[in-house]
Amino acid sequence: MIEAKGLTKRYGDRIAVDGISFSAKQGEIVGLLGPNGAGKTTAMRMLTGFMPPTEGSAKIAGHDIIEDSLEARRNVGYLPERVPLYPDMTVRGYVTFWAKLRGVKNSKTAVDAVLARFHLQDRQNQLVRHLSKGLKQRLGLAQALVHNPPVIILDEPTIGIDPQQVIEVRDAVRALGQNHTVLFSTHILSEAEQVCDRVLIINKGKVIAQGKPADLRRQLQPGSTLFVVLHGADKKKARELLAAVPGVTHVEAQGDGWQVKANADVRGELSASIGAAGLTLLEMRPITTSLEDVFLELVKEV
C-alpha cells in the first residue's frame, strides 16, 4: 500500500529526510518513531502529497505521489499534528466538506458512518469551535477516514490530549489496522509498542532501525538483565561473586541490589553460586528492556 524509495527532502543545505525507504502492506500499522525534528512530519508530508520530495519516489496504493499526485492523494487520509479545523462550521458540515472534496459519492451515508464510529452524532450540529480538545481530535480522525482511504497517515495523534482520550485514540488506531494501512508517528515509545505492527525508528532524517517491536528489542538486546538482591555479604564481595558467574558481562549496583547483565540465561548459575557462597538470595527478577532503551541506544550511537 505504501512504498517509499529513497525519499529525500532538502531545504537548501539542510537535509530533513535522507533517503527513507520502506513499504507497508494492507492492514499494517507502521509506527514512525523518532525524537522531535527527526524528519517524521516531513516524511509524512511527502507521502500525503503536501510537498514533493527532492529525490526519490513513493507510491500510495500503486499511485506515484508525483506523477499521479491527485490519485495518490485520493487514497490517503491525513491528520496533521495540529488538528486542522474550521471553527465556524458545524461538525457535520466539516466532515461533509472533506467527504465531498475527496470525491465521496454518497457523502451522507459516509458522514453518518464516520460520525457514529467516533461517537459524534449527538454533536453533529454543534460548531466545531465549541468542541473539547479530545472531541476535536476525534473529529480530526473522522475527517481523515470519511472517504474510507486505504492509507491513513496520522501525525502524532495523541499529543496534547488527556490520558483517557489517548487510550481512546490508540484503540481507534488499532481498530483501523484491520482494514487500512496506517502510518502513525509518535515520539512516545510505549505507544508505538502498543499500537504498531512495525516500527521505523528515524533520527536525523534516516531510518536507523525497523521491524516488529518485539524483534527490535531482541535484535538489539540479545542477552538478559536481572535484578538481584543478596543478603549476608559486603558490597565488594558480592560484586566479585556475581561477576565471577560464567556468562555475566556486567554488574552494576542499583538501589539495594544489583543489576546483572549477561549474554545468556544465567539464573540457574547465579542462584547456585550464591548458595555455594553461603549467601541468601532475597530477590531475583528479569528486567525487560523497553523500546525506550533500544531507542536511546540507537540515538546515542548515531
Binding site: 508530508r45 491527485l70 492523494r73 491525513y78 486542522p84 475527496r102 470525491g103
Partner: peptide, 14 residues
C-alpha cells in the same frame, strides 16, 4: 493559521 491549508493541499484537488 488553522492548518487547514495543509489538509486542503493534501486533498485530491488542485
Amino acid at each position: 493559521r488553522e492548518g487547514t491549508l495543509e489538509l486542503l493541499m493534501t486533498a485530491p484537488v488542485t
